[in-house]
Design a protein around this nucleic acid. Structure first.
Lengths: 226, 226
DNA sequence: GACAAAATTTAGGCTAGCCTAAATAAGGAT
DNA sequence: ATCCTTATTTAGGCTAGCCTAAATTTTGTC
């Protein structure tokens, strides 16, 4: 395998992969926002990524980028590192789930294939990290995962939390205080149109929680027929 | 604690610390050799390190450098990271002792204080890494360690290996094949002047091994009265 | 104490990645 | 279709860290 990609390049590819999933194509501004750098810097990097051999992204001026197969391979490799590390930190070292992301963000770029293989084995080839994010397998294939967001659910429907797609430590801590963590079972008790707030009652929790759409959009669930 | 030192700076400080132990003062050329970069590059970096606030090294033109207290603090912090990581990789992840150094060299710069604290605790606040190198404690104090090198020993003397101060994987693999690892008990069976070769027989090994001074100088032992 | 060899520093250059300010292109509203 | 806003790119600049080649200092030897 060729390597020798810089951390910065790996971060760009990971970001583009992520944005492509929800937006199809990653725009300069979106990438700049995620990476917290100036849009002009993104343009420069994107040009480089699209002219390497093999190219890592396909770039159309003023139209944003998508990953090439090679770019996607690299992105998935980093995502596998990241999510395996998150689970390792959580399971083996006892990190709280709101702190694993920041640590994994730095470690993901420096661990060797041997490190990856050893923690994967120690964890029993896991398919999901502590946030419920799917972990690509050795061949970089994504396991199946819930695609229904909590935002689509309505009163009286129930299900289990599968995935919380956000890395803000404060939000994660807040959610876990409310019992909103993967595998938690809940019932929707309220929905208000216009602001799209959703109220849910989590099993074992004293009271229901109202969540706005910015949050519920990031929470994926398995619905139950109830 | 101030941080935000680059990986390169940390590598320089670690190298200078190491060289200072054996040579008192680290010369431009020595640093360049260890880091495998051009001497001119070292001069440039040293100037920077000596003019930061607070300065990390004390630099006298044409005379080399020594660490300031602050520089030493940073070096010891990195060395603590490195050696804790080596032991962690060895004990917890099952790495062979010849591979831990390379992995730790990259990880040492990116782990957080929390990571450091958690692996230290998981390992029971260890004092020595798999090569027998002493691990600075939380307050960066070095535990005591063997200072007698195998090179000084003579026939009929015996003792135990305490420390193998070399990171060349091939050498380490060779030595462990001969049973020369920390805690191994041995007796010196031969010494030849002029070339300073030393022959030792390790307990449980079928035959004696002849080691040149470049190797024996790096092996530290605890002598026994025998 | 002079001189050659070795060590070190200076000078000038390069790449990766970031920045700001200014120019240009795209897209939506009228 | 034009105007205005927003997105994007261009141009020029900066720092960290490396490089080579040339100049200089130190050191060891006679």
């Amino acid at each position: 395998m060729r390597d020798e990609l810089t951390h910065a390049v790996e971060d760009y590819l990971k970001t583009i992969y992520d944005l492509s999933l929800t937006h199809g194509r990653a725009s300069t501004t979106q990438i700049a926002e995620v990476l917290e750098i100036a849009p002009a810097s993104v343009t420069g990097m994107i040009k480089r990524l699209s002219t390497t051999r093999p190219p890592l992204v396909e770039y159309i001026k003023h139209r944003g980028v998508i990953l090439t197969p090679e770019g996607e391979r690299v992105a998935l490799e980093i995502i596998r590192h990241h999510r395996l590390l998150e689970l390792f930190l959580y399971e083996t070292l006892g990190y709280s789930w709101d702190k694993v992301d920041a640590e994994a963000d730095r470690l993901e770029h420096v661990i060797s294939e041997e490190f990856e293989a050893r923690i994967a084995e120690a964890l029993g080839d896991p398919t999901h990290d502590p946030h419920g994010d799917p972990i690509p397998d050795k061949n970089l294939l994504m396991p199946s995962h819930a695609k229904l967001s909590l935002r689509e659910m309505r009163p009286d429907q129930c299900g289990t939390i599968q995935r919380v797609r956000d890395n803000d430590p404060d939000l994660l801590r807040y959610l876990s205080e409310q019992g909103i963590v993967p595998q938690a079972h809940f019932i929707v008790t309220g929905y208000t149109p216009f602001d799209n707030n959703i109220t849910i009652l989590v099993d074992g929790q004293p009271k229901a929680v109202v969540l706005g759409p910015r949050i519920t959009r990031q929470i994926f669930v398995e619905q139950e027929n109830g």
